[in-house]
Amino acid sequence: MDKIQRLTSEHGLAIFSKSTCCLCYAVNILFHELGAATYVHEIDHDPEGKEIEKALMRMGCNPPIPAVFINGKLVGSTNEVMSLHLSGSLLPLLKPYQTMH
């Protein structure tokens, strides 16, 4: 979907989220605590939200939210992000987006 492509290319670290999703909140807090400047797109506040959600699933993100993109590439949802974090592989990916060191 063009909108996903545009937003992920404009923002190095993008999260597609829903304002009512507790896993989205947890992922957002994780990135915040790691000092990463994230762009969060709340799909439940977007008129095209349902289409975005379907497109994320087609891209292989299941569940579709939170969908984390780093440097324009789909990292995945909560499980993938947490696995990267626990293995120590997340921080190096976030280096360019960290606002505090």
Rank of each mutant, 00 (worst) to 15 (best):
P66T: 12
I29T: 14
P66I: 09
S87A: 13
M82Y: 00
V68G: 03
L93Q: 06
T20F: 15
T78N: 11
G76Q: 08
F69A: 05
L13C: 06
H85S: 01
I29P: 06
V27G: 04
S77T: 12
H41P: 07
H101Y: 02
R58M: 14
T8M: 07
M100V: 00
K54G: 11
C24D: 15
S9A: 10
E33A: 01
F16R: 12
F16A: 13
M82R: 02
Y25E: 15
V75E: 08
Y97N: 04
I70K: 10
L23R: 11
K54H: 12
F69Q: 03
R6T: 11
P96G: 04
L84V: 05
A37W: 00
R58Y: 13
V81R: 02
I43Y: 12
I15C: 10
P96V: 05
E80K: 11
H41Y: 04
G88T: 06
C24H: 15
L30W: 04
E80T: 07
E80S: 05
P64F: 08
T20K: 11
N79W: 01
E48V: 09
G76Y: 05
S17G: 15
M59N: 11
L90K: 03
A67F: 04
M82N: 02
L86V: 00
V75F: 03
E48I: 06
L84G: 04
I52Y: 14
N79L: 02
H101K: 07
S9T: 12
H41I: 02
L7R: 04
H45T: 13
A26F: 12
G60C: 11
N71D: 14
K50F: 10
T20Q: 14
Y25M: 15
C22L: 15
L93G: 07
T38D: 00
C22V: 15
H85D: 01
T38W: 00
F31T: 09
G12M: 07
C21T: 15
I65Y: 09
P96K: 06
G49M: 12
C24Y: 15
S89C: 09
L84A: 06
G49I: 12
H41N: 08
N79I: 02
L86G: 03
H101D: 07
L13D: 04
I15H: 10
Q98I: 00
E51L: 14
S9W: 01
L23S: 13
L94H: 05
M59P: 11
H85N: 06
K3G: 02
S87P: 04
A55F: 12
